[in-house]
Structure formats: C-alpha cells, structure tokens
C-alpha cells in the first residue's frame, strides 16, 4: 500500500492550479483534504502523474456572503464549516449533515469541496448540495462556468467536472429562517457511508407548503432528487398530507442496489419508512399507527 510514483505540485493561486491542470492534459489529480484520495493512492486505485495540492490556496477557503446566498470555499474543512457562525445561522441543515461525515478526526482534514467533487453516492455533502439547491462554480484556463448541483452528478464518482477544471466555489441559496429541515441517515456505524439517507428542506407559507427540496443519498448511482414527491407536496397543508403516499412517490425515483452491507429491497423499505417518519415529524403530522 504505497502509492505509485507521482509529481507533486502545491500552487498558491487558483490561476496557477488551473494552469497546471490545463498543462497536465488529464494526468493530474487535485488533492484537497485527502481523506478519500490518500487511501485510493495507497491502494494504487488512483495513479495520477501529478498530484496538485490545493492546501496553499487561501482563496479556496472560508465562508462569505454573496447576494442572497452563502459562498463556501471548497477547501473549507468540514469541522471549520460546522463551527462557522454564518453556516450555523444560514444553513443549519448543512451543518447537521456535516456532523455525519466521517469522524471528528477525518473532519479536521476532510473538505466540503473534496467530498462534493468526489461524488460518493452514499455521502452526505453531495446530497446536501443537491437538496439545498447549491450552484457549483468550475474554473479552468478556458473560463468559468456554473453548474447546479443536481446536474453535477453523472454516476458513482463521476461528475461533469472536466479534467482541466477546478471546483472554486459552492454557492448555496438562502432558505427562509423558518424553513423546516429534514435529515435522517441510516448507517451501520456512526461515520460510515449511508445505507439509506434523506436530506431536505420545506418552506411553509400561510400554512401551505410553498417550496420543497428533497434528496436521497445511498439510494442510487448519484444523489437523487425526489422531484415527484416535491411536486406532490407543493400547495398542500401539513394537516391534509399523507406522508406514506408521498414516501411512495419519493422511493419510486430511487434506484438502489444490492451490496455487501444491505439489499436494494432493504434500502427501499427503510427509505420509505424513514421518509414517512422524517416528513411526519418535521411537519408535526401525527401518523396513524
């Protein structure tokens, strides 16, 4: 478990990093916190020619406010994000989700951007980005583009990032302070990837659901937005909702798989149950036993 040989570069600026990626022509891999990449390098499952270490690029770190949104630097560590006052007040759901990422020690190094860009389908951060409607800023020597998080993921560990592109910002739109958070993760041990995970946010206006955004993780090849369930929720009042039926719509859009840890059936069954319970509890709906 020693990595194959690679060249190592540690640029100071985003421009420098993009220049290296452009020149490498696909042979470079960026390393953020290294919590996933280091084991992959050691197992030789990843064998880049050049490793581009982003740790010196201060512009990629920290949380700032922009118009009606919060901009999170992708190199912000998960623990720094959890401790960030702006995120705690503006995006408590994201903070809640980040507490489930790995363990305290790994969160000291692991970054939000690293996790989002890696695209593990059972991880919390990609689903949080999708559920919260984040926009991802991608830069290269060719220019800048932005991609909505729910168009970012193509498959397990596969995203729309081009080999010469760098994730430079995660912009999360503001949600009303009284929006209702939904979060539930079922994992074999604390810190593990989810067997089944659900994250979402609901906005009520005059007693009716005006906005709903829900995403699954661990339920398919990518984070999966539960669009049919969202549509079914809009305009409804919590009193007249039937959470179990909404859960059926939500589960219909998932495509879970069998693996060593759980069957697809398990994921669907438990997914439907936790959806029903989480939605009911979040909206204060009393469920029939």
């Amino acid at each position: 478990m020693k990595p194959a040989p690679f060249d190592y570069m540690r640029p100071d600026t985003i421009e420098e990093a993009c220049a290296i990626l452009a020149e490498a022509g696909g042979g470079a891999t960026v390393i953020a916190g290294g919590q996933t990449l280091m084991p992959l390098l050691a197992l030789r499952m990843s064998q880049p020619f050049i490793l581009v270490d982003l740790s010196r690029i201060t512009a990629l770190r920290g949380v700032t406010r922009i118009a009606e949104a919060t901009r999170i630097g992708p190199m912000t560590t998960q623990n720094d994000a959890i401790a960030d006052a702006t995120l705690q007040s503006r995006l408590p759901l994201l903070v809640q989700a980040l507490r489930h990422v790995g363990h305290h020690q790994t969160r000291n190094r692991g970054t939000i951007g690293g996790s989002i860009a890696f695209g593990e389908p059972a991880a919390e951060s990609p689903a949080a980005a999708v559920a919260l409607g984040a926009t991802l800023e991608l830069r290269s020597v060719r220019g800048v583009r932005t991609v909505p998080a729910d168009e970012f993921y193509l498959g397990p560990y596969a995203t729309v990032i081009e080999p010469d592109e760098l994730l430079t910002a995660i912009d999360v739109p503001d949600w009303p302070a009284d929006s209702v958070p939904l979060f539930r993760e079922v994992a074999l041990r604390p810190g593990d990837f989810a067997l089944v995970g659900l994250i979402g946010s609901i906005v009520l206006e005059s007693g009716k659901i005006a906005r709903a955004s829900l995403a699954w993780f661990g339920m398919g090849a990518t984070p999966i937005k539960a669009r049919r369930a969202e549509d079914a929720l809009i305009g409804q009042s919590p009193d007249s909702l039937q959470p179990a039926l909404i859960a059926e719509l939500a589960i219909a859009e998932t495509d879970p798989f069998d693996d060593h840890h759980a069957t697809a059936d398990y994921r669907r069954t438990v997914g439907q149950r936790i959806f029903t319970r989480t939605l009911s509890e979040a909206l204060g709906i009393r469920q029939a036993a």
Binding site: P39, L43, P190, H260
Partner: peptide
C-alpha cells in the same frame, strides 16, 4: 457486522475496513 466475502470467482469483496466492518 463482520463478514469476509468472496464472489463466485473467489475474488475477495471486503478488502478494506470500509467494507469489512469491525465493531467501533
């Protein structure tokens, strides 16, 4: 938790502690 797995061709399927689950 623990279960060391092989597929039909005798390939081990739990070769890291991400997949071979020890009690924490």
């Amino acid at each position: 938790l623990e279960e060391f797995g092989y597929d039909d061709r005798g390939n081990p399927t739990t070769v890291t502690f991400k997949d071979y689950m020890l009690p924490a």
